[in-house]
Nucleic acid binder design. Structure first.
Ligand SMILES: [Mn+2]
Ligand SMILES: [Mn+2]
Ligand SMILES: [Zn+2]
Ligand SMILES: [Zn+2]
Lengths: 153, 153
DNA sequence: ACGTAAGTGGAAATGATTTTCACATCAAGC
DNA sequence: GCTTGATGTGAAAATCATTTCCACTTACGT
């Protein structure tokens, strides 16, 4: 009966220091966003919603969440960093829509194994990986069709 | 008998427009670098070597080479873009040393298959992937050991 | 309640990349 | 070789995300 929209947990806040009102607002907005969003965009959204958190604080909170493993980070093509509240306790990879930010967690077992093997056989230390998939989601693809290459039926 | 260091080919230049002296210098320096290097660093190197190419031109040339598929791009952790002359005609992925830029092409068959499958089953259009491995190469790891956690034998 | 370490926010600094635009130079076509 | 228009160049300024500063709050253990 209870709806199962994602929620912020006290757990999230405990990991990054003191529980301030600002952090609660940022975390709340991030959870509600349900997808990848930039610090700038999240800040605008907060201000628009009458929750005037400083931009520096938004950056600090998102960075702290990411470091604590409570948020995932995605580099978009312009180099901007997008954040998303991490649904579970484990590291994930996503397929992200370049138009609207919609993100879909993808099954990444094979890549993890691949990356681990390379890490082991390379001789390199502290090997990390960054795997990002991006594309245009069905909705955005449909919208895009109605504008250019107007292939009449 | 002929050494087989990588060389710039006329082919590389043909793909990006006119063959100017500046482009030849940038391409030459990129090839000689034999690893990932930033536009800024490459520019400094050119200036130091008495080949005063403008920074804008370095950026333009590297970007053009990347678009033409003659260079690979790597986003380092600070968001800076590193370039490397692409050894062959095909798309590759690398394991890059975060300390010195040394890069090792890695066998990426499994990831390509994985990414292709997701692209096909996701419903997304124009799916692209970015896969980056980074770590500390043996040489740099050795150097790092002689400085901190001095665990006496 | 108090004291204080931790957090906040507006403004300024940073730093990579892009843009501008007056000037130089490729590469055709004669 | 010489003219010429499209293309390329570069110094400086603009952009823009992110970080740093620092005087002022605030959370929270005592
Ligand atoms: Mn992974
Ligand atoms: Mn690939
Ligand atoms: Zn979309
Ligand atoms: Zn190294």
């Amino acid at each position: 009966m209870a709806d199962n929209r994602p929620r912020a947990t006290v757990h999230d806040m405990a990991l990054i220091g003191r529980a301030t009102q600002q952090r609660a607002m940022v975390l709340g907005a991030l959870v509600v966003a349900e997808g990848f969003i930039s610090a700038q965009a999240l800040h605008k959204r907060l201000v628009a919603d009458g929750s005037p958190v400083g931009l520096s604080t938004v950056y600090r909170t998102l960075t702290a969440l990411a470091e604590a493993g409570r948020a995932d980070v995605f580099r978009d093509t312009n180099g901007e960093r997008l954040f998303r509240h991490r649904p579970g306790p484990d590291h994930r990879h996503y397929l992200v829509c370049t138009q609207c930010g919609l993100s879909l967690p993808v099954e990444s077992g094979p890549v993890e194994k691949w990356a681990d093997r390379i890490a082991r056989t390379s001789g390199f230390a502290d090997v990390r990986h960054s795997v990002e998939l991006s594309g245009v989601c069905p909705d955005c693809g449909r919208k895009a069709d109605q504008g250019q290459t107007s292939r009449s039926s």
